[in-house]
Amino acid sequence: MSEIPLAQAAKRVIPWWLLRHETMLALILLIALIGLGGMNSRFLTLDNLLNQGRLTTEVGLIALPMTFIIITGGIDLSVGSIVGLCAILLGYSWKTFGFPLPLAIGFSLLVGAAAGFLNGIVITKVKVPPLIMTIATLALYRGLAEGISQARSVRGYPEWFYFVGQENLLGVPAQLWLLLIAIVVSAVVLDRTTFGRTLYAIGNNETAARFSGLPVDRVKLIIYTLSGLMAGLSACVLVSRVTTTRSDMGIGYELDVIAAVVLGGTSIFGGVGTIWGTVVGIAMIQLLKNGLALTGVKGDATIVVIGTVLILSTLVASSLQRRREGV
């Protein structure tokens, strides 16, 4: 353990918050941005960055409640399938049931919440581990989306519906406002409320949290429901952006989301994590993909880079963490 004196030295010179995972990550991101920006003049333009925000909103919206869930030591693999199910039900209720579109949107959000609630209720009441429960509903919800839609797409929504997905509001992509609001609200909830502190308590030691009289089951039920609801919202934004519903929408989102959250320093073991870290994680993945593409790196090589970054950054973060704790 020859590193310890070094870490001590570092600790004296560098303020503690600079060694935090999120800060380190943000610095890495900044360096990468400048590097990639230097290689392609079209990368660091406001237009491009805002556009990347537009493209990543759907994943971002889901990553926020996923941060909550992972902080409690849980996981939700069914989010991508909930996106598919909600997208299908949005289209189906509008076209086949003849719901007015606002009602159809409300209905699909409700279905998202209900799907999340089902995950939550089985996880808390029957004590099925979240990983297994959500693997099962990953198949179930996708299957429902396929069965209900019979693989048919729904198209031809009214023009106004495309506003959220495609237009700008005050110079910023409309859906980015949704994401910004969601980020601020989640950050405040996690940082400043009893609810947020309960999440950490559950993640650190669930049994202890129970014995301290914290409403563990209720809190878990809420976050899984919230995860479903946000997946529903994400589905609506996605449909509005791409103008059509398909039953294969959102496939693979779960891995993108989890990668972003974990990259952002949230520990998969629970108890550690911030919304700010998740935001940096999302930005990092999206901008790396975009920046590499603009500098001429192909898609297959890009995912190799993303995978490597995921492992290496977690490695750096956890060794820093251990050094700090080791002191």
Partner: peptide
């Protein structure tokens, strides 16, 4: 993978580039 969502992002990137 044959995913429309990913394909859109690729095209978008090339428009920018």
């Amino acid at each position: 993978e044959a995913k429309i969502d990913e394909q859109i992002k690729f095209i978008d990137n090339y428009i920018t580039s």
